[in-house]
Design a protein around this nucleic acid. Structure first.
Lengths: 174, 174
DNA sequence: TGCAATCTATCTATCAACAGATAGATTAGT
DNA sequence: ACTAATCTATCTGTTGATAGATAGATTGCA
């Protein structure tokens, strides 16, 4: 992957984290990376292509991060809660899949499909790590919702308040 | 409140539930209610005004619904879980405050403030109903997140999976 | 080696569609 | 006659997308 393609994905990711699919334009991305909007189209023909690849990359990256941390700490919930905590306290504050998932009904097919894939990956991995299906559903909802509520209240500490149980507990293991 | 003003709020609410703040235009709303876009501006001067009032109404409505149901059932979590379940299984599938909360960083001030007010209302009411602050934070995150995940997976039943604990349990009372 | 063909990555310029917003005329109810 | 509500018409700006030109690197063949 060329440097420019990566830079475009980075810029799009940042803007999607703030405003979702409607929250970025080819011209804005172009300014961010220092080229013209038509050149962004060269790398990603349509807006749908670009957004879908941002989500795909995020999913794969998250999956890898979780695997790496789970190898070091067998408490799956703590691993997940810590991983998303990084997002809550990052500059962007939000996970692109969460903001896109909330407006999933208004998304181009390819983007909606990638977002769906992200949440499926989360649930499947949690079950593989030992959680029951219901437990994984409830837990995933909690950490995703914590991201939304913290963002809405403009208070990252709110994420900690909502996830104390999982980040601290030594018992309720994977 | 005039019938037309209510109809405009209804239309805007529906469209916000699907696509957030960027998911509706004055022209679309105008078509929905059968007038011209300039006439929508007569009732709500700016897009910010309209969106803010949609959220304000949703907050007040939700607050009233919860109070009414809590008077009939003293189990606060069951009351909240059932109330949001109605949203998850509605045609719109989403709560406007949730979709707007996820993109809160990109919202006009007045809208962001109203969204913040919604989540504050939820937490304050939960605490007033007997939950601890941390418990309220975690529980609110769970039901909000369940809405997002169910929407992204295009499967309302996912909301039930994530909230079984609260909707069924007779014990973990308010 | 040297030349022709092709590819990569960017540019300029432009299009039709749509956005939010405003001014001013018109209509209908009291 | 006044007012509330709607209309017509228009403005300025932005959007995603496309066409066509260009410079430079790479490749393939004689």
């Amino acid at each position: 992957m060329s440097d420019m393609k990566t830079a475009i994905l980075d810029a799009a990711e940042r803007r999607i984290q703030a405003g979702g699919f409607g929250g970025f334009s080819f011209r804005e991305i172009a300014e961010d990376v220092g080229i013209k909007s038509s050149s962004v189209h060269y790398h990603f023909p349509t807006k749908e292509d670009l957004a879908a690849e941002v989500v795909r990359r995020w999913t794969d990256r998250t999956s890898g991060n979780i695997d790496r941390e789970f190898a070091k700490d067998p408490n799956a919930k703590r691993v997940w809660a810590k991983a998303l905590r990084g997002t809550a306290f990052s500059k962007a504050h939000m996970c692109p899949c969460t903001i896109l998932g909330a407006s999933s009904q208004d998304l181009p097919k390819a983007v909606a499909a990638e977002v769906k894939r992200f949440f499926k990956m989360c649930q499947d991995k949690m079950v593989a790590q030992g959680m029951s299906a219901d437990d994984a559903s409830e837990f995933l909802s909690t950490i995703i919702g914590a991201l939304v509520v913290a963002n809405a209240l403009r208070d990252s500490a709110e994420y900690d308040r909502a996830t104390t149980t999982f980040r601290v507990a030594e018992k309720s293991a994977a």
